[in-house]
Design a protein around this nucleic acid. Structure first.
Lengths: 115, 115
DNA sequence: TTGACATATCAATAAATATTGATACGTTAA
DNA sequence: TTAACGTATCAATATTTATTGATATGTCAA
């Protein structure tokens, strides 16, 4: 069997990439408590407006956040599903079972590896 | 209180960055069942040697894998701690509590946001 | 001891991402 | 209406990350 469904690695890479930047982690931290307006994020993070907008788009494209417009304000909130997905991915990538106590190469021979 | 310990976001970014590439996800998938020799990874992933070595280094620098040398072979395995750490990070970034049913801006005023 | 091997590292380049400043667009207050 | 506002998007540039081919290093077999 394949290790994972065909697009698992692409989706995993996308989610983890969205979380691989300190500014974006900062945004997520601010959203942990609930929905926030872009202008609040801007004040708190002290980030230039277009820069913040760029990072919000990365998060949105990865499905990490949802947005909502209200008049001239935009509100962002975390998407619970994406976090469930991320947690599940970490679990699926995590080491399973135990290493054999006697080391056996995957080709079945002990202490040898390549031909 | 700060949302997280001072280096949380740096460490989170590092771990997630290590997992943000399809080739590296592929490597991790191969290691899920236990330790593997570099040459096996090379055959299975069909990746150029220096390319594979580069990605293994990214994973190693992030603490995702440990390596071991035996004669002329190198073996890599997943580091359980890093996955526990990653899982915990996802949990800490995940939305908590409930959004207020009546929307209130963080500045306490309803329906308003910025000054 | 010499030569082939497994792997890491390096330098050059390519490709992807991020930052910045400018502009565009819808919305609201005056 | 018009002007200021909040936000998104774009183009140019800077920065980071990945790939490639070459070389270095330690190890083992002949």
């Amino acid at each position: 069997m394949p290790a994972q469904a065909p697009h698992f690695s692409a989706r995993a890479a996308q989610i983890f990439h969205a979380l691989s930047d300190e500014t974006r982690i900062g945004i997520v931290e601010l959203l942990v408590g609930g929905e926030r307006c872009v202008c609040e994020l801007q004040d708190t993070l002290d980030a230039a407006q277009s820069r913040l907008s760029f990072h919000l788009k990365v998060l949105k494209d990865a499905g990490i956040v949802n947005d909502r417009r209200e008049g001239r304000w935009s509100y962002y909130e975390l998407n619970r599903e994406a976090f469930a997905e991320a947690e599940e991915m970490v679990r699926e990538l995590r080491p399973r079972g135990r290493r054999p106590s006697v080391r056996v190469a995957a080709n079945g021979r002990q202490g040898e590896c390549c031909d």
